[in-house]
Design a binder for these strands. Sequence first.
DNA 1: GCCGTTTTCGGCCCGACTGTTTTCAGTCG
Length: 589
Amino acid sequence: MTNAQIAKLLRNVAASYAIKNEAKYRFQIIAYQRAADAIQSSTAEVKDLIKEDKLEGLPGVGPSIRAHLEELIKTGEVKHFEAIMKEVPNAVFPLLDVPTFGPKKAYKLVSHFGFKNPETVIADLKKVAGQGKIAKLEGFGEKSQQDILEAIEDFKEGNKKTKRMVLPYAAELAETILTYLKKSDVIIDAKPLGSLRRRLSTIGDLDFAVSTKDSKKAIDYFIAYPHKERIIEQGDISASILVSSGRQVDLMTQPPDSFGSLLQHFTGSKNHNVHLRELAIKKGMSLSEKGIKIKTKTGEKTEKYATEEAFYKALGMDWLPPEMREDTGEIELSLEHKLPQLIQLKDIKADFHLHSSFHIEPSHDMGISTMEEMVEKARHLGYEYIGFSEHNPSVSKHSQKEVYDILARRKDKIEQINESNKNIRVISLLETDILANGEIAIDEKSLSLLDGTLVSIHSAFNMNREDMTKRIIAGLSHPKAKILSHPTGRLLNQRPGYEVNFDELFDFVKRNTKALEINSWPERLDLPDIMVREAVKNGIKMVINTDSHAKDQMDMMQFGVSVARRGWATKQDILNTLSYNKFMDWLKK
DNA sequence: GCCGTTTTCGGCCCGACTGTTTTCAGTCG
């Protein structure tokens, strides 16, 4: 059973409690939802966590839910869950996945019409809505009947085409919308919110904060967005639209003197904010997007905050980078004024994963920009040095002698570039396959031509955990193999990573002066942020690379930096912040 | 049901928007 399935089960339990008696089970409902959130966002599978006795490490999973989950993994079902859910018709649960449907609405409709089949319930509901039968129900009307039809339609569309966007694409779309917003006369400032601002690797909806003295005009301007498909909702201070790519875009407004509270409130994460508001209550404060409500002798007043810095300061905290706001210890550090200094884009002095168009006759894809073009781009980016890491020449099409000859020509070419340009030092790297047997694809003689090599997995993904771990460690064991590229092998929205024992791998990397790559490619963003955090805790060195196949892709470094920041990495954790000489010293270790 | 340097008992975040309502319930973030 996957984490997603377990999370859904816990949400169904929460929904069942809500249907039974929401007031009575209020806190159980919250508890089950929290546990579901924690499990859904965990990188480790619940069954593995149980095996390693780490399940209680998840925030929101206590003794009771842990016992239930152990029963689930052991027997495939949980008696307690079954008992609660038995009182709710099965057909309720699929409806909960449809936006605008909560437990109450789903239950009312399913029980009134007597729907029995979870498989067909959405179609069944669409049918009775089409027949005008919902509008006649108490608590429903013509409009809500129409909304139900639209929600079902959108849901079916969404299932097909609108998965979460990877960060770089979301950032691009956001930039277009921000540019539009900033053209308005009444909009003083506009900034991204939510997961976009926290720089998650994948983004669902896009949220924006707007500073304005005239929220009505700002909202009118927003809903007139040229690529708008339709308005989802429109109120006095916020609105939501659907844009033509099928994405929902939300806008929140506040006057300039409350803009700081607005940014803070909607940047989240939910857990960060809930924790913050609980702390505030203990200080007699109440937090919202409007400011901080404080009880006074005469009544209460709301202090306004124009900046987030001032808002956090009022709570006795330092401003936190949005990437850290996940309630994983950052609030405590901020209260103690001990936040780490996260790495910034300007700290980056090099990029080691560049595929040029040099004719290397590679095992995989080639770049399209010349080495010279990429060097020029590196100069523009203010780098000090770069490394070319084309895929190794195909070993199925060439003898090792031929591989050597190609690499020797490439070495000459790199030397020539180093002689002709004084701005950027170029080092001779390669992206070498780790073969299924753990050997690296090219021989000793060819390796001797390189300053070092990145190694990576591009074949035989389906090995078991133990064999894959052995394979990677074997590949990384060669003195020239220094960096493991895209370590998990995941592709966002496409495939999960291969199975590796990362405890073992981390240990090996640390003991042998190797490094793990944070790959900035939009679908990779690999190492994932959560594992970067583990790597940082364990003192593992990393590099942030773009894996560029064209010069302009070198701009994607910012996304790798975002991943590093979400993992709390500082300059000291990332090797391409080192000067050329220091990095070369490391490479030779 | 979870959680803890104010608590192992007694708390548990805050508000906007919509539709169907004459004051609120449901959903969302």
